[in-house]
Design a protein around this nucleic acid. Structure first.
Lengths: 341, 341
DNA sequence: TTGTAGGCGTTATCAC
DNA sequence: GTGATAACGCCTACAA
C-alpha cells in the first residue's frame, strides 16, 4: 500500500496524490475528492521512512537518558515526561537512548545513523564524550545540564551551586553550625557529574563564608543508602544538626534514619534540599527545598532544540534556573543534639 | 557524506563499499583496508533511514505509554525501563508514544507511518482502540496487559484477579472480617482498565467465598488521594480492619492516614497488595504484597515481540504471572478497632 | 574480486 | 490542473 497504488486507483499520477495530501499545489475539487475517497477506503498513510529519506529529516528527536540499570530519580522522570510531552505538541517523535559513557551503541546508532533531527542530552558530565561527539557531527543538541565549557553548547540547567549555597545560608541563619552535604552517588561524582561538583563548590563556599563546621558525603540514589548515609553521619558527627542535599531519591531513607535516631524534624534536626517541586511537596513531611520546575525545564530544552534544528546557526542559548527555596517545615532553629536527658 | 562519497574516495564502486561494510561478499584485503581507511578518516556511518527504506524495516520498536500528564507508577516505570533495556540488548531502538484513547497523533504516526517494526502496548483497556488499530494494520504487537478477548493477541500480564483474591484469603485467614479494596483511579476503571476490573472480580469472589463484609473504593494514583481514601474508609466503615490494594502510588498516603488515625500496622490494621517488587520492598514499612517482577515482564514482552516480528505467523503467546505473596509484615491477626480505650 | 543498475516510497522540479 | 521523472542513500541481484 503506497502512493503509487492510490494514484493508480484514483486514475491520477503519484505527484497529484502527493500534492492532494500536502496541499502544496492546487488540485481540482473532484480529483481531490476522488483521491480522498480511495485513501479513506484503503486507509493509506504515507511511509514516514521514505518521506524522511526524501526530506532529509526524520521529525524525530533523540532523548538520551541515564543508562539502563539505574533507576531514574523523580526529577529525571519529570524531565523525560516534559520532553516527551513538548515534543508531542510539536508533532515530533522521541527516540530513546539509554546511554552513559562513550561508545554506546544506541547513542551511536542515533547520532551516526542520522536517525534524529536533534538530541536532548540528560545527565551531562563536566567532560562529556557525548557532547564532543555531537559537536563533531554538527547535529543540533541541547543539554539538560552543561559541561565545563558551557559556552560551547545550548543548555538549560539548575544552578546547584547557588541553590546549595542558599540552603546552607538558610540553615546558618537558623543557628546551625554543623551542617552536612548529602550528595549524589560517589560513582556519579567521580565520573564528573556536574550537579554533584557544583553542589560541592557552593556548599564549600557558603560554609566558609559562615565559618561553619561541615562534612560532605556521597550517597547512592535510593532510600536504603539514605538510611545508611544518615546513620553514618549521625554516628561520626555528634554535633551535626542539619543536612543540605541534592539527593532526592535518598530522602525517604534519610527521614527514616532521623526518626529511628529519635530526632524529630524540624525540632531536633533540619533538612533542606534541591528537588523536583512535585517530589518535595509529596514527601512526608514536605521538604523545605529549592523547587526545580522539572516540567518547565524539559519543555524549554525542546523549544531550544526546535529552534536550533530550524536554524543551526542560531547562537547558543542558555537558561540557568535558581528557583527560590520554599519553606515547608523541615527546617527550624538549631537545637543541640544529645541534650542531657 | 554518503556511501557514494566513500566509494569515490576509495576508488571503488558503491556496492563494494556496501559489501565491505556488511561482509556479505568477499572483498580483497587491500580494498577492504583502503575503504576502511577512508571511512575512518571521514567518520562515515550508513544512513539508517535509507537502509530502513531499502530493507523494509526500521530496527525500531514502538513503546506506547500512558498519556502525558499522568505520572507513571513505579511498576509502569519498571516496564518502560525493562522494555528499553531488552530492546537495547537486541540492538533495537525504542520510539515512545504517550497515548491513551483513540486517534492519538503520535500513535497514528508510529503505526500508520510504519515508523516501527512492532509495538509494545502498555495500560491496555478491556476494549482498546489501539489494539483494534494494530490488528487491522497487521503490525506485530505485544501487550503488557490484555483486552476482553485475550486470545486475539500476544501479551504478558499480571493475574490481578487471582492475586487480589489471594490477598483477601490471606487476610481472612488472619481473622479479618471487614476488608476494603483500594483500586486505581475512578477514571481508569471507568475507561475499562483491565487490572482495575479484574481486581474487582477477584475481590468480589474471595469476599463471597469467605462471607466477608467488604467495600470497594477507587483512588487516584498519588499519595494525597491515598490519604483521603483511607480517611474516608475509616470514617465510613468503623469495623474495617484491613485493606487489599493494587494502587502502588497511593500507598504512602494510605500509610500516613492510618498513622494519623492512630492505627499501627500491622498491630491494629493490615494491608496487603500487588506491587512492583522493588516498590514493595522499599516502602516503609515494607509491604506484604504479590511481587510483580516488572523487569522480567518488560523483557518477556520484547522477546515475544521480536519473535512476532521475525515470524508474524507465530501463534499468539501469552504469559500470565501470579507471583507469590511475600510476607513483609504489614499483615497480622485481626484486632477490633476502637477498643474501649 | 569487482562493477552496474534497479528499486525501496516519497517529494518536488520541470514540462505540458 | 496534471504527469513524467529525478533524486534522497542504501542494498543486492545480476553481470563481468
Amino acid at each position: 500500500m503506497n502512493i503509487g497504488e492510490i494514484a493508480r486507483r484514483s486514475g491520477v499520477s503519484r505527484s497529484t496524490v502527493s500534492y492532494a495530501l500536502s496541499g502544496k499545489r492546487r488540485v481540482s475539487k473532484v480529483t481531490q475528492q476522488r483521491i480522498q475517497a480511495v485513501i479513506d477506503e484503503l486507509g493509506y498513510r504515507p511511509n514516514a521512512t521514505a518521506r524522511a529519506l526524501k526530506e532529509g529529516r526524520t521529525r524525530t528527536i533523540g532523548l538520551v537518558i541515564p543508562p539502563a540499570g539505574r533507576r531514574l530519580t523523580d526529577m529525571q522522570l519529570g524531565f523525560v515526561a516534559s520532553v516527551v510531552d513538548a515534543a508531542g505538541r510539536a508533532d515530533l517523535d522521541v527516540l530513546l537512548s539509554p546511554s552513559g559513557g562513550e561508545h554506546d551503541r544506541s547513542f551511536e546508532r542515533m547520532v551516526g545513523g542520522k536517525r534524529v533531527d536533534g538530541v536532548v542530552l540528560m545527565e551531562i558530565r563536566l567532560e562529556d564524550d557525548r557532547v564532543t561527539r555531537l559537536r563533531q557531527t554538527g547535529l543540533p543538541f541541547v543539554g539538560i545540564g552543561r559541561t565545563n565549557r558551557p559556552e560551547e553548547m545550548s543548555w538549560v540547567d539548575i544552578d546547584y551551586e547557588t541553590l546549595i549555597s542558599r540552603c546552607v545560608h538558610h540553615l546558618a541563619d537558623l543557628g546551625h553550625r554543623r551542617i552536612a552535604l548529602v550528595n549524589r552517588s560517589a560513582e556519579l561524582v567521580a565520573a564528573g557529574y556536574g550537579p554533584g561538583h557544583r553542589a560541592q563548590t557552593g556548599f564549600a563556599r557558603a560554609v566558609a563564608e559562615r565559618g561553619l563546621d561541615s562534612v560532605q558525603k556521597c550517597c547512592a540514589d535510593d532510600a536504603q543508602s539514605g538510611v545508611a548515609c544518615v546513620e553514618a553521619l549521625l554516628g561520626e558527627h555528634p554535633g551535626l544538626t542539619a543536612i543540605a542535599t541534592i539527593n532526592e531519591a535518598a530522602m525517604p531513607g534519610m527521614y527514616r534514619a532521623l526518626e529511628q535516631a529519635g530526632l524529630a524534624v524540624p525540632r531536633d534536626f533540619s533538612v533542606a534540599g534541591v528537588a523536583a517541586q512535585h517530589w518535595a511537596e509529596n514527601l512526608h513531611p514536605p521538604l523545605t527545598a529549592a523547587d526545580v520546575p522539572a516540567d518547565e525545564l524539559g519543555a524549554r530544552a525542546v523549544e531550544l532544540l526546535i529552534q536550533r534544528i530550524a536554524d543551526p546557526a542560531t547562537p547558543h542559548l542558555n537558561l540557568l534556573l535558581a528557583p527560590a527555596i520554599s519553606l515547608r517545615g523541615t527546617t527550624g532553629p538549631a537545637r543541640p543534639r544529645d541534650p542531657v536527658s
